[in-house]
Design a protein around this nucleic acid. Structure first.
Length: 620
DNA sequence: GCCGTTTTCGGCCCGACTGTTTTCAGTCG
């Protein structure tokens, strides 16, 4: 047979990360040096977070430097990118039974235990482990007992019922409830959420809470007995952990009053950020843990002292605030959303940390729906709710004709809707004049702006003609159908929308769903470049199941010079809170107010919209 | 396996809790 040289399909960064995580797991079970396994996991995380498509760059012979990827892993990446396979990985898979990796997921079972179970009882899967534990065979192994058996059975059960990582909305509801409950316990003066929730990561695994109290025993006892507790995972003098039924694990840490600074830093993380801080502390002769900074011991004295040499406790420095704790290292305060070791330490040292956008910087919202298409509340209800938030504008962007499933508007309905909007604005204007409505700012009251969420059709045409589009205040365009087209087709569709003089914003550009659907296969470099060139804003959609653009992509977009829009995509009045999550995600992307279209006043926004149409139309 | 304005070798975060033990190992965050 003639050998046709066909390139194997490109592996995504997520595929590559999975492979290296599995390598790390297999090496752990094999009993390989811990630091080597950690190196693989670290590299896998770095690969997963890379905003560029690594396999493609490797194949083009232009691999970027990735932190945590050295020569050995880089060679493996090259092999995977070129051939789609990795000999080293295949050999490991042949050597380590697949079921062993599943055992690692059981809480309380680590690589050492997996190894012992396999070598002494031949257990290489979850079902076998369960049967062996139920039959009381684990206790026959040296180092394991009846108690271990019970805890492994409980671990398997919780693994099977455990929900995945939570979306922000779910986490927020739980955190609010827990903080409210714990705050009422006698002696408790303060309860603070920490962890990935405080860093506003897009999904949350465990919840971390920090508390100040004068009576740790009472707090831990109440905490362990909260309604909804399925199991108490641990309860000590300084910390406790519970699992909520059908929900996440909640860790509670108790802080001595007045020493919150390093506790907040330690338990907010991320781990990588903390490791960097520790490194800086060590350079200065201090160790760092949640308890504070501990003076490192001097080098051992070579001279043998008499028996009267007294060892005194090393000096401990504690701080009541994070600002002070960072200042001890010569650093300014670093916002929680930045603490991922993605350059924030260097920026802090250089004095170039960004002034992150805040919710109060937003003057309006460019994307929302009403019951005219697939929203729940009426135009008036949505407008009233937006006005109550103190905004200067809300853009009503119901779906367009071809998105029939969302009751997209026909051109006739569009004209009717415009009249409704105009009527409402007349009332708002009158109420302001009468002093009956709160002005959003001293110089600008609230107006509902008329827009649409314009469908970018599968054939790369837009859903309405230019004459109709020209009548809108603001147009956001997005892809809903034909998601599985080729990279070239999808990219051309988005570029066509970006190049329209009448499209102002590309909504949820990646078309992703958190934990549900991958990003559209777009040539992002091209999309960002064209958006920057034409002055088309890219949306950071705040819905907690979208969060699109995601943080790393958005960071790349602003590096290319793109303007962003932070939107709620509210389909009901409660969903205006999505703006808070859009802001959280934007802060994780190092976004400053000037990079965001809807931090501008209404007059500035409308001038900008008119500017794009004029500029591009003049260019032909 | 990665990494280096004090290192190309020798480090790689620290501490609480739990369980099986008479001083510690494994796991977790």
């Amino acid at each position: 047979m003639p050998e046709a040289e066909v390139d194997p399909p490109l592996l995504s960064n997520a595929d590559l990360a999975t492979i290296f995580h599995e390598i790390g797991d297999m090496l752990e079970v094999k009993g390989e040096l811990v630091f080597k396994t950690v190196a693989y996991h670290r590299a896998a995380d770095a690969i997963a977070h890379e905003p560029v498509e690594l396999a493609r760059l490797y194949r083009e012979g232009n691999p970027p430097k990735v932190a945590g990827v050295g020569q050995a892993i880089s060679d493996k990446l090259a092999e995977l990118s070129r051939t789609g396979r990795l000999d080293f990985y295949d050999r490991l898979v042949a050597e380590v039974p697949a079921g062993l990796l599943g055992l690692l997921r059981v809480p309380g079972v680590g690589p050492k235990t997996v190894r012992i179970l396999y070598e002494s009882l031949g257990i290489d899967g979850l079902d076998e482990l369960r049967r062996a534990a139920q039959a009381g065979r684990l206790r026959t192994v040296k180092g394991l007992s009846e108690k271990t058996e019970a805890s492994i059975l409980a671990g398997i059960a919780s693994l099977e019922t455990r929900s995945n990582r939570m979306l922000l909305g779910v986490a927020e509801a739980l955190v609010d409830g827990l903080v409210a409950e714990l705050s009422t316990i006698p002696g408790v003066s303060r309860v603070e959420p920490a962890g990935s929730y405080r860093r506003r990561r897009e999904t949350i695994g465990d919840l971390d809470l920090l508390a100040e109290t004068t009576d740790a025993g009472v707090l831990v006892q109440h905490f362990s007995g909260l309604p909804g507790v399925e199991r108490v995972l641990g309860a000590g003098a300084h910390k406790a952990a519970i699992r909520l039924s059908g929900g996440p694990q909640v860790d509670l840490m108790i802080m001595p009053p007045g020493e919150a600074g390093t506790y907040l830093i330690h338990f907010t993380g991320s781990k990588d950020h903390n490791i960097r801080l520790l490194g800086i502390a060590r350079e200065r002769g201090w160790s760092l843990s949640e308890k504070g900074y501990l003076r490192l011991a001097e080098e051992a004295e070579p001279v043998i002292r008499g028996t009267d040499a007294r060892s005194t406790a090393p000096e401990l420095r504690t701080f009541s605030t994070e600002e002070e704790a960072y200042a001890f290292l010569g650093l300014p305060f670093i916002e929680p959303e930045l603490r991922e070791d993605r350059g924030e330490i260097e920026a802090a040292q250089a004095g170039t940390l960004p002034s992150l956008i805040r919710l109060v910087d937003l003057r309006g919202d460019l994307h929302s729906h009403s019951d005219w298409s697939d929203g729940v509340h009426s135009i008036e209800q949505m407008a009233e709710a937006a006005r109550a938030r103190g905004h200067a504008y809300q853009v009503l962007t119901d779906h367009t004709r071809s998105l029939a499933i969302a009751r997209g508007l026909t051109p006739d309905r569009v004209r009717l809707q415009r009249a409704v909007v105009a009527q409402l604005n007349t009332r708002f204007e009158r109420e302001e004049a009468d002093g009956r409505a709160p002005a959003a700012t001293p110089d600008e009251g609230f107006r509902l702006l008329h827009g649409c969420e314009l469908e970018i059709r599968a054939d790369a045409t837009l859903d309405y003609d230019d004459d109709l589009l020209a009548q809108y205040d603001v147009v956001v365009a997005s892809v809903h159908v034909g998601r599985s087209q080729t990279r070239e087709q999808l990219t051309q569709r988005v570029l066509a929308a970006i190049r329209s003089p009448y499209v102002d914003v590309i909504a949820h550009p990646a078309g992703r769903k958190v934990q549900g659907r991958d990003d559209l296969n777009l040539d992002w470099d091209l999309v960002f470049a064209e958006a920057a060139r034409t002055g088309t804003a890219l949306e950071m959609n705040g819905s907690d199941h979208r969060l699109d653009l995601a943080d790393q992509r958005a960071r790349r977009a602003i590096a290319t010079g793109c303007l962003l829009a932070l939107d709620s995509d509210a389909h009901r009045i409660e969903e205006f809170r999505h703006l808070e999550w859009a802001v959280g995600q934007a802060r994780r992307a190092w976004v400053e107010p000037a990079m965001v279209l809807n931090t501008r006043s209404r007059a500035e926004l409308l001038a900008w919209v008119a500017g794009k149409a004029t500029r591009l139309a003049a260019r032909g």
